[in-house]
């Protein structure tokens, strides 16, 4: 029984980790006042970037870096268009997703059908052999730990550091931030690039650890779930972290329920995170004063220093 619970929890961790990366990254982007709907596109490009390097070099570290870099490059395109050329963020983000899916298919042409052994797991003697917690806490791959640290790190960064304050300031009121001397465009660019790298890591986790292979469109909508999680978490990193695990948990529990022959409509469970997001949006619109405290006031608005 204990073995079974450990195995189920391990599956939940793998299902949730890509969502954690993408959602935490997007929180920083949106906190800076930028709405990047291209998460799916950045994830898929991260997935092929990481996989291509993993297969060619066999070096997991390089592969992870390549995943982050691929997402970052796509984010740079988005940042340049929306922050410097002031294009519409929603339209640019959607275009970025479409571009990412097509571009990754092109890059991945030669990698279809290849396999990669998967990321090495941390194996600490004694600790990894502990019952229950050993495998769960001390036997994961490096990206899982990185996802936990990124949730903690971003919480600390946004809440406790000067630069985190600057990010929030440009997201809340870019004119005020500009008037006290912050470079709104540069700070936003930094946030967008960070979000891209994180989405790229989420994609890298998919193609290196979750299902170590490359097939077109393998993110299968996880970028959109991450976007929904950001609103669901009302822009709080730790809530996004638990939201991702809640969603991963529901997915896996639902599969287990089916395997045990429990009669649950799987379609209803798969729409739960979106349903939850709609509920949160309804709450925000109804009780504005309370919930809107967290939504960045300048979200989605272009900034132009006009004087």
């Amino acid at each position: 029984m204990i073995d079974f619970v450990v195995l189920a929890l391990l599956t939940i961790i793998t299902a949730s980790t890509p969502l954690v990366f993408a959602a935490i990254g997007e929180i920083v982007v949106e906190k800076a006042g930028v709405l990047n709907l291209g998460v799916e596109g950045m994830m898929i490009v991260g997935a092929i970037g990481a996989f291509a390097v993993a297969v060619t070099t066999g070096d997991p570290t390089l592969a992870i870096l390549a995943g982050a870099a691929s997402g970052l490059v796509l984010a740079f395109i988005f940042g340049f268009l929306t922050l410097y050329l002031l294009s519409n963020q929603v339209a640019t983000g959607l275009a970025l997703t479409l571009f990412g899916i097509g571009f990754s298919a092109l890059l991945g042409n030669g990698f279809v059908g290849q396999t990669y052994g998967g990321l090495p797991h941390l194996d600490i003697p004694i600790l990894s052999d502990l019952p229950f917690v050993g495998q769960l806490i001390f036997g994961q791959d490096v990206l899982v730990y990185l996802s936990v640290f990124s949730a903690l790190g971003v919480t600390w960064f946004l809440g406790r550091t000067r630069w985190g304050l600057a990010v929030r300031a440009v997201g809340e009121n870019h004119d005020a931030a500009h008037s006290i001397g912050f470079s709104v465009t540069l700070i936003r660019m930094g946030a967008v690039l960070f979000g891209g790298a994180m989405a790229g890591l989420g994609g890298a986790y998919l193609s290196l650890a979750h299902t170590p292979l490359w097939v077109e469109n393998m993110t299968a909508g996880r970028g959109w779930i991450a976007l929904a999680l950001v609103v669901f978490a009302s822009w709080k990193p730790w809530r996004a972290f638990f939201g991702a695990y809640l969603f991963g948990g529901i997915t896996i529990v639902q599969l287990h329920a089916q395997g045990f022959g429990v009669d649950v409509p799987s379609q209803i469970l798969s729409m739960l995170p979106y349903l939850a997001t709609i509920v949160v949006l309804v709450l925000i619109s109804r009780d504005g004063s309370r919930a809107r405290l967290n939504a960045p006031a300048c979200l989605g608005r272009s900034f132009h220093a006009s004087g």
Binding site: T11, T211, V215, M218, A220, L255, Q258, G259, S270
Partner: peptide, 27 residues
């Protein structure tokens, strides 16, 4: 026979999760 429906023709992640789930259940 245990059957798990993933409501997709193609979702590598979910297909993998479904396979893991059933293996955990003794398949």
């Amino acid at each position: 026979i245990k059957v798990v429906w993933v409501s997709s023709w193609f979702d590598p992640g979910k297909e993998a999760d479904a396979a893991k789930t059933m293996i955990d259940q003794g398949v």
